[in-house]
Write a protein that binds this DNA or RNA. Structure first.
Length: 445
DNA sequence: CATCTCATAAACACTG
DNA sequence: CCAGTGTTTATGAGAT
């Protein structure tokens, strides 16, 4: 949360008290805490606190988890369609719809509210929504503006945050655009940048053949940012026609058009109408503080986000972003995580295991948004090495490793957490299991 | 209380 | 020079 504005639990614009939780809104104590602030809510929603053991599914891979949840998700989606059409149903304590989803519905009904998504989720959704699953920064901006009215009048800093996320989040990879196209404003050709530097810590990049086809495209073509990913990969692996690919790829869309024909998870224009509530449902995450404050001003004039032109990918923006996993192999630049390659290798299997566990935890815990502190430490460590191996500002050229790929996988998987889908689905799973159990008992009797 | 996650701001380099 | 892009660092709030 931003340090600038004081906390504000109740944005005037909505009357809705937003929880202090971030993505943790769905998980564990974060969400529980939000529930403890029930008194601050001016509307009542059912308690969908995670039941004990709900997160045991953590042990499942995201793939299996999604696979096993698909039917439950379908059933749940139908119940959503049946149960939350009218706005007033949001206040229905008996609604089977998980609270975060209700929050999300509320946010869509009143789009001047802060988006419930973290920036990484927003970026991911934008990319996922793109036919090519890759977008230039400008189009990411536009997508966000198009789908979340709040940003139309939000302070401009959010764009900086988007770029910051793209740079730091390991889930996102910069990829090359077609060679013929201009590099675009502000975009710096990697090799150009490297050539301008007095030395390079890994001179072999210039001397050895590229490991991956795209690794050197940047010498003559602009960079693009990729958004393909773990989700995409899983979608391909599953090859299950019953599963909506979007759901698999995304993990963010609780209700996908494939699952629920006619239902648009993210209403296009304008968001904020009652119809949007009937048509859209998303994950949820509440924000507060400066953003809530900003929502006040945005409330003054709820202009349609469509007033912002949606530029095509052929706009002045050139670098595209894609979700990184395979992108790790394709990107011309390694992730910041590659700094860890400078760390001392583990000497024992135990160390390896601990290390990998740590890495996994890191990725899962922070959605691929590697700890800045750690990175600073890593960077600092790297800075201690002799000058001929000093990393420069823009020397992210190391060859990606398999562990990077795993990291990406985990990071991408953790986006499921960010979007709340996991917790929600866990909840749904529990509820459904309970319901079936009760139903059995009822039929027995 | 330490650590982590994330948002935000800002500085800086670079490009068109 | 300006606006936009991309990277990096610093900082703070809240969660763990």
């Amino acid at each position: 949360m931003g340090p600038v504005m004081p906390p504000s639990k109740k944005p005037e614009s909505s009357g809705i008290s937003v929880s202090s939780g971030l993505s943790q809104c769905y998980q564990g104590s974060g969400f529980s805490k939000a529930l403890q602030e029930e008194d601050d809510l001016d509307f009542s929603l059912p308690d969908i606190r995670l039941e004990e053991g709900a997160m045991e599914d953590e042990e499942l891979t995201n793939l299996n988890w999604l696979h096993e949840s698909k039917n439950l998700l379908k059933s749940f989606g139908e119940s959503v369609l049946r149960s939350v059409s009218p706005v007033q149903d949001l206040d229905d304590d008996t609604s089977p719809v998980p609270r975060p989803l209700l929050h999300a519905l509320r946010c869509q009904a009143e789009p001047q509210l802060q988006t419930p998504y973290s920036f990484s989720c927003l970026i991911f959704m934008a990319m996922e929504d793109s036919p090519t699953e890759r977008l230039p920064v400008k189009d990411i901006y536009n997508w966000i503006l198009e789908h979340f009215l709040y940003f139309a009048n939000a302070p401009t800093g959010w764009k900086n945050s988007v770029r910051h996320n793209l740079s730091l989040n390991k889930c996102f990879k910069k990829v090359d655009k077609e060679r013929s196209q201009s590099i675009g404003k502000g975009s710096q050709n990697l090799i150009q940048a490297l050539k301008k530097t007095p030395y390079h810590p890994h001179p072999h990049v210039f001397n050895t053949p590229p490991t991956f086809p795209q690794a050197y495209q940047s010498t003559s073509s602009p960079l693009i940012w990729l958004a393909s990913a773990f989700f995409k990969r899983n979608g391909a692996l599953l090859q299950d026609p019953d599963i909506d690919a979007a759901m698999i790829q995304n993990g963010v869309r609780v209700l996908s058009p494939g699952l629920f024909p006619g239902v648009r998870p993210l209403p296009i224009t304008p968001i904020g109408v009652t119809a949007a509530m009937r048509n859209g449902i998303t994950g949820c995450r509440m924000r507060t503080e400066s953003q809530s404050s900003s929502a006040k001003s945005s409330n003054a004039r709820s202009t349609s986000p469509t007033s912002h032109s949606i530029s095509s990918s052929s706009s002045s923006a050139d670098n595209h972003y894609e979700f990184a996993t395979k992108g790790t192999q394709e990107g011309s630049e390694g992730s910041k995580g590659s700094f860890r390659n400078h760390e001392s290798p583990s000497n024992t299997e135990e160390d390896d295991r601990k290390h990998s566990q740590k890495e996994a935890k890191d990725s899962l815990g922070n959605s691929g948004y590697a700890s800045q502190h750690k990175k600073c430490q890593r960077f600092a460590e790297v800075r201690k090495v002799p000058s001929d191996t000093l990393p420069l500002k823009k020397t992210r050229t190391e060859k990606p490793s398999e562990s990077d790929d795993e990291e990406m996988k985990e990071a991408a998987g953790s986006l499921l957490h960010l979007a709340g889908i996991r917790s929600c689905l866990n909840n749904i799973t529990n509820r459904m299991a309970k319901g079936q159990k009760e139903q059995k008992e009822t039929t027995k009797n």
